[in-house]
Design a protein around this nucleic acid. Structure first.
Lengths: 272, 272
DNA sequence: AGACTGCGTTTCGTCAAGCGCAACACCGAC
DNA sequence: GTCGGTGTTGCGCTTGACGAAACGCAGTCT
């Protein structure tokens, strides 16, 4: 057919081989997924707002959103309203965690641990330079308490994070650690101090964080290992500091370590 | 050519048993989301398999998968391996659950249930070896029972409690159960009888309690589940026994179960 | 060993699918 | 009323996505 190259290639203007900053493959899909991320960040947005954020036209954003809506990944608040993430995400997330034998094996034990201690139990893995929470079992009260699943948490200021860091070698540590942000007066911000703390964690087989991420929040964590002995995840018990005084932390640590060991066994660690 | 979405029809797109993509919208996005659904169903698939399932060419499927991978929504098992859902899904889910509150999602449905039955509706969760009532919607009748919100109620003598217990495994059951106090002559006090009753509850998907906590008080309850299928709460309809004769209980049970299922769906429970 | 078959991956020319534009319906505020 | 804002919808044009075929690599059968 006609070669309507109105804008001919101006001489040697090679197309940049990697023009896409976002690592784009299929662009419309890329944009659609961008919409999901925008909604995850903002919680709720209108079509115009989304279009602005993505740098595309309103109508484009609308069509993408409509497609996402057909799959229940987003939903609109009113008949003529803004959009937010929908339940389809949750169904996919359920399938994601169901697939992870880690979560499968850990869940009953986590539940038992939560029942024994009366506090919230979390399971986290290392992901993209932070701790990603895979699963959570609420403790005594407040099943509606804040859900951390899917959240990214700083590594140096949490018991889970310290356990995960302690499982890395020096190279891995350097690759993962960024700047050590300060959250409270007790947050470990110096690299030497952190290394010392990690050595202690490695030696004693658990980590404790009191008021390091948030004042009044105490957490203990223990490593979960795979068949090779690598630390692949961390299991934590956390609650308000007043409910977890020092003498009780010992008992909680004992239970948490035992639970983590049990999960590790189920994953094939130290068999026979 | 194909008319894109003659009518958006946001309601009737379910129950397409064939893996064929749902249709309307931006085609490539539609296919990409189809891939997510395929992976959610199969747990793990190769490019060729996905392409076959979607009815597209291998290369097309690959490009879509690669785009999804760039956003961490899928990941491949090995360097040259199959694909499965990734952690990006969990991050999105975190943003979704952040706004999902059990009480908030359940209240409109509970209100409808109360209106339909004319009786009081309660929502309870497991907390510290008893049932904690989170919310209550009064029925239409003048005869009101007192407000139970915030109260801790014995697990073995209420319909809500039995539903919550039925959601536990044996270990959890043992951890939670104390002594089975006697409230009326119909209270279940023997552990074997309770186990049998819980098995029945588990099988039929609801619980009934007549005069077990208090003479003259009848209640039915159905489980509310999260995305993993765990029983996280229980929704009950309760009223004076004389207003809930046996033949009417059937109808109330049907409504209560339907309401609980609806709430579960809003919380991401699959299985339409 | 070698041929063969399967996989995931890459390249490339073609064409229709998706894009931006602009107009639309609708709502609330000045 | 007008204006500015929203989400929504046709419509041509072109860009971006598609399918066919080739490629590199691992197993596996002969």
């Amino acid at each position: 057919m006609v070669d309507v190259a109105d804008t001919p290639d101006p001489g040697g203007e090679q197309a940049q081989p990697s023009p896409a900053v976002t690592g784009a493959g299929v662009q419309s899909v890329d944009r659609a997924l961008g919409i999901l991320e925008v909604l995850a960040r903002t919680g709720e947005s209108g079509v115009t707002e989304i279009a602005l954020e993505l740098g595309v036209h309103k109508s484009t954003a609308f069509r993408l959103v409509a497609t996402l809506e057909a799959h229940r990944l987003v939903e609109q608040t009113a008949d003529r309203g803004r959009y937010r993430l929908g339940v389809g995400i949750l169904r996919l997330a359920g399938a994601t965690t169901a697939r992870l034998d880690l979560v499968q094996e850990a869940r009953p034990i986590a539940r038992q641990l939560a029942a024994d201690t009366g506090e919230t139990v979390n399971i986290a893995v290392l992901s993209e330079s932070s701790a990603l929470y895979l699963d959570q079992v609420a403790g005594s009260s407040a099943l509606q308490s804040h859900n951390w699943v899917g959240q990214h948490i700083p590594l140096h200021a949490t018991s889970n994070g310290k356990v995960l860091l302690a499982g890395l070698d020096d190279d891995g540590l350097e690759a993962v650690l960024g700047t050590l942000a300060t959250y409270t007066s007790r947050t470990i911000t110096g690299l030497p101090e952190l290394r010392a703390e990690l050595a202690r964690v490695r030696e004693q087989g658990f980590a404790v964080a009191v008021d390091e991420l948030e004042v009044g929040l105490t957490a203990v964590a223990a490593p979960i290992r795979n068949a090779h002995g690598d630390v692949i995840a961390s299991m934590s018990v956390s609650g308000p500091s007043f409910r977890l005084p020092e003498e009780q932390v010992e008992e909680v640590v004992r239970r948490a370590v035992a639970a983590a060991v049990e999960v590790s066994h189920r994953l094939g660690w130290g068999h026979r």
